[in-house]
Design a protein around this nucleic acid. Structure first.
Lengths: 131, 131
DNA sequence: GCCATTATATCGTATTACGATATTTATCAA
DNA sequence: TTGATAAATATCGTAATACGATATAATGGC
């Protein structure tokens, strides 16, 4: 306990940094016709080990309820950014794979995001150090 | 350009870390009867230099449109967490000050958030280093 | 004093995650 | 094997909230 003005400022600055990053991200995703959630779902799937992504996995990584992830995936499938294939080991599950178009979009988004994070990194480190 | 599996994983992990922090934060704020936005508005105001916070300032720090900040502040005032006093230098502005209750709530929230960020710090540093 | 700008407010709308609930498949105990 | 429970995904109505469009009032440059 016992918080100083510096602590409040660091916490507020950290929030501002996160919001900046998310605003940047939302803008970039939007340019590619994606919502932030759609972008992050694609990223989570892409970053998973070869084709082992399921709807439940998306829910887990995005901290959503499974049925919310189900809706999100349905929207992505409806705009042809991913395909759901019934799992061969568990009839309840679907394996998710990105379409070529989604791969392309995500590659571009990831490149700009990596740059932006590199740009924000010093500021983030500094703020975290304050705590 | 040219992204590796490591890059995608780092980006995905960074998202997951942010989401974890925000989920933690939302839970704590909720325990105190606040929405995340209300919590962050209080924090931004508290962290500002003595009483110089205005609605526009909240908008700026939370990256909201001014009229959205206006709504947010109105909700906070309606539950007695802050007071709006007409600015003495500019008749269009309001100066915002936290109520004693808000001060108490924010102090507790800030303490737990500082702890959580200290806990997440190593992970965040590690992920940022990967990029 | 006029006009553009700034600060704040109001209202209707769109988005989206959720709760409640349902369906299908898997698992495990007896 | 059967039966019960749990897990994975889906559907639908709802609530929350930031936004766009628009408005009002105050400021400041000229």
């Amino acid at each position: 306990m016992d918080l100083s003005a510096v602590d409040y400022k660091a916490l507020a600055d950290f929030r501002h940094a996160i919001r900046s990053f998310l605003a940047f991200s939302e803008g970039k995703a939007s340019e590619m016709g994606l919502t932030p959630q759609q972008h992050q779902a694609l990223l989570a799937i892409r970053a998973s080990q070869n084709g082992e992504a399921t709807i439940g996995y998306v829910a887990e990584r995005l901290l959503l309820k499974p049925h919310s992830a189900s809706e999100l995936v349905a929207r992505l499938e409806s705009i042809s950014l991913l395909k759901r294939k019934p799992s061969e080991v568990d009839g309840r599950q679907y394996n998710l794979t990105l379409s070529a178009k989604a791969e392309r979009i995500l590659r571009e988004l990831s490149a700009t995001h990596r740059e932006e994070l590199r740009r924000l990194r010093p500021m983030l480190s500094e703020v975290l150090k304050q705590l």
